[in-house]
Design a protein around this nucleic acid. Structure first.
Length: 720
DNA sequence: TGACTAGGTAAGGGTAATTTTAAACA
DNA sequence: CTGTTTAAAATTACCCTTACCTAGTC
């Protein structure tokens, strides 16, 4: 219970381990624990649903919130069935076609294509084990310095458990550890130099690469893109015509035929003359072929259809999707390759798509779209549906599927990555109400205890900390507002230090607490203007822009007498206040339905606050000891059973720190040690100061417009 | 000598993102 | 008409496989 009163400028931050509080566009909040789960620990996911309720009897603007998902991640597929078979593949170099045929004939199958996250994990683990067993510190010693003899069996050993040919493992390892790979964009100077080297050394990529400090494959790839005769930009009709002719000629097909493979793009480019092979391929597969064969436009229905069709495939791994098959007979699909890229854009609507398993992702997308279907308002954006207030609803929903996984205690305690992150986005909605609304008390109360509620009063806005993606919430305002977080012990918001009383820090206690002790975490927003949302850790910057203007699609026009301006669209009119958001773990099924017609909130700027693990607050300690509630939940839908985990919750000493992460957010993998933790007081970045000043002004005037906030964020982002 | 081991290379098809450009709005 | 936003198109950095090659060695 650290409650910070308006005046008390004490900043208390509790540290938290690893919990992430998130909210998606639709108002869902999700809590989650660290995700790096070692292969063995049981992990489970927790789903929570956030609901917004209208506090008043007044109207509700509809917000639908929902989130869900869950499921245990089984590691089955990772572990190959039959180690013997696997090893047969992974121990074969595949030098010749015969080797391959021989294995194929014996019924062996192996994985091809991009490596999955799981595979990489296995590989890394194998390497680590190998190093440990031999007392070697750095894998590069083996890979680049040892003679073949010295590293005997290295590749074979680390290929264990991977259903890939040894050669593939070898390649990947080389790429992975070659620091001349992944260097990034080529600068104009590098390009110049590359041209010269190319003339001088021809196709001796190794030599050219060495001279440029790039890997051989990197320079080779770059040269493929450089053709002095290449045009850039829009294709002329003449070029398109030539491309079509060449493709048909080389593949012996007729105009109108669908040609998506078996084309030698190098040969095509040669004939087209003004474009590189990649340009030709891209143009053909993403547009020209479709256009010529009478394709139709892609619609929203197609999108939903795609998700459903993928779901029907019931594949466990995305790599198992047969895009050729899926694209067949679908006139609005430009090519299998194009369909796949379409899938990518859909997938990216889920901010943390990379962190969830494929089945979960599909489930989340299905729910998301079903929701949109049920709430047409969500779908129509810019369609001049005449709804004046219909906000700028962005068709792009940036939703996050929250998945929480609990590691067992031992894992947590021993793991260096104890530090966690709490990415949170908070949106300050500009109030349509009088600016006069005074800012009174900014109080954020955090309570820890069985029922904790913290409230954030009035309005706040983001305060950049100087670290990209990391902000402090700054309150500036007025009437008691809005945000109440009720949770079990551990999620807290704190207000700031003496120096900057208006800063708020959001933090949580250790994840164990959250998950274990709390059965319910409720966040209530009494006032319409504040929204908290989390951002996917990986795309803070992009999410800002994407999330920024997402409007609450559920709001009915009728609810709002006056059309809000674009920015305000996100705002809730005063009358409406008190939307309340509740997040609760859905134990069984309870989620979605509950919230159906509630108001939703918008997301905007993103704030990331991260806390440490230790907490020293005595108050907290006392209150914190809640019970040992089970914390796992699995929602229906997935066949996976519910797993319950219990973790004992011991509270550590506290330390209050805010740690800007070098990444702009804290990654679960960041090792947070004391050195990396910066005291709050050190956040004196000029940008921050600038914002502070600005915010003060704004704060006094009450209700800083959203636009301001978003601008701030943008500026901040741009700065970095 | 020939087969095998353990790499190694260039070429080219492909993917995942980012950057640009064009179109749609307010 | 204008400044924004956003969706689509283009571009690019990187990935993976195929087909061949090679030095050492058993």
């Amino acid at each position: 219970m650290s409650t910070v009163e308006e005046d008390s400028d004490t900043v208390t931050v509790e540290t938290v381990n690893s919990v992430t509080l998130t909210q998606d566009t639709e108002g869902n909040l999700i809590l989650h624990c660290p995700q790096n789960v070692s292969e063995n620990d049981q992990s489970f996911e927790v789903t929570m649903t956030a609901t917004t309720e209208v506090a008043d009897d007044e109207v509700t603007e509809g917000t639908v919130t929902q989130i869900q998902i869950l499921q245990n991640e089984q590691l089955d597929e990772i572990s190959p069935l039959g180690n013997e078979e696997v090893s047969a593949v992974s121990q074969a170099w595949f030098t010749t076609k015969e080797d391959k045929d021989s294995l194929t004939n014996k019924g062996h199958k192996w994985k091809q294509g991009m490596w999955s996250k799981e595979e990489i994990d296995i590989l890394m683990n194998n390497i680590e084990r190998y190093l440990k067993a031999r007392g070697i510190k750095d894998a590069t010693e083996i890979i680049f310095e040892m003679s073949k003899d010295e590293r005997k069996d290295f590749y074979r050993t680390i290929a264990w458990g991977l259903n890939r040919p040894l050669f593939a493992v070898y390649r990947r390892v080389l790429r992975m550890y070659d620091d001349r790979n992944h260097v990034g964009k080529y600068t104009p100077e590098e390009i110049e130099k590359l041209k010269e080297l190319r003339i001088k050394h021809g196709n001796d990529w190794a030599t050219i690469g060495a001279a440029l400090g790039r890997s051989a494959s990197s320079v080779k790839d770059r040269c493929r893109l450089m053709k002095d005769t290449c045009n850039t930009g829009k294709w002329t009709e003449e070029e398109e015509k030539r491309l079509a002719e060449v493709v048909h000629e080389l593949t012996s097909t007729e105009p109108g035929d669908i040609v998506t493979q078996g084309v030698s793009w190098a040969a095509v480019a040669e004939r087209v003359g003004t474009r590189s092979e990649k340009q030709c391929r891209s143009k053909w597969l993403n547009y020209l072929n479709w256009k010529q064969s009478g394709g139709t436009e892609w619609t929203k229905e197609d999108e939903i259809n795609l998700i459903l069709r993928i779901a029907e495939l019931d594949v466990a791994d995305e790599n198992d999707i047969n895009w050729d098959l899926l694209a067949e007979g679908w006139s609005s699909v430009r090519s299998p390759q194009w369909l796949r890229s379409k899938w990518w854009t859909i997938k990216r609507q889920i901010a943390n798509h990379k962190d969830v398993s494929f089945p979960v992702l599909i489930k989340g997308l299905k729910q998301l779209h079903e929701n949109q279907k049920n709430n047409p308002t969500l779908l129509e954006n810019k369609s001049g549906s005449g709804v004046p207030n219909s906000n700028t609803n962005s068709s792009v929903q940036h939703v996050q599927i929250r998945v929480a996984r609990l590691e067992d205690n031992t894992a947590i305690s021993s793991s260096p990555m104890a530090a966690l992150q709490i990415p949170v986005q908070i949106t300050h909605v500009s109030s349509t109400d009088s600016p006069a609304a005074t800012v009174d008390s900014e109080t954020i109360t955090l309570n820890s205890g069985t029922l904790q509620t913290f409230e954030i009063l009035p309005s706040f806005h983001l305060q950049p900390t100087g670290t990209p993606g990391t902000y402090l919430l700054q309150t500036s305002s007025s009437q008691g507002l809005p945000l109440t977080l009720t949770a079990s012990p551990t999620v807290t918001l704190t207000a700031a230090a003496p120096a900057s009383p208006e800063q708020i820090i959001v933090h949580a206690l250790s994840p164990e607490h959250l998950l274990n002790t709390s059965d319910n975490v409720t966040v209530q927003c009494h006032t319409p203007r504040v929204i908290i949302q989390t951002v996917a850790t990986e795309d803070i910057t992009s999410s800002i822009s994407q999330a920024e203007l997402t409007v609450d699609s559920d709001i009915q026009s009728s609810d709002f007498p006056e059309p809000p301006d674009a920015l305000e669209a996100d705002t809730f009119p005063d009358e409406i206040h008190h939307p309340k958001m509740t997040v609760e773990p859905s134990f069984n099924d309870a989620h979605v339905s509950k919230f159906s017609d509630q108001n939703s909130t918008e997301l905007m700027n993103s704030v990331m606050v991260r806390t440490e693990e230790e907490i020293s607050d005595t108050d907290l300690k006392q209150e914190e000891s809640p019970s040992d509630l089970a914390s796992a939940y699995v929602t229906e839908g997935l066949e996976s059973p519910t797993i319950e985990e219990q973790v004992d919750q011991t509270i550590d000493d506290e330390t209050i720190l805010i740690v800007p992460s070098p990444h702009g957010f804290i990654q679960t993998s960041d090792v947070i040690d004391t050195e990396s933790v910066l005291p709050l007081t050190t956040l004196t970045d000029p940008i921050l100061q600038h914002h502070q000043e600005e915010s003060n002004i704004i704060g006094s005037s009450l209700g800083s417009p959203v636009s301001e906030d978003s601008k701030d964020v943008e500026d901040l982002v741009n700065c970095h």
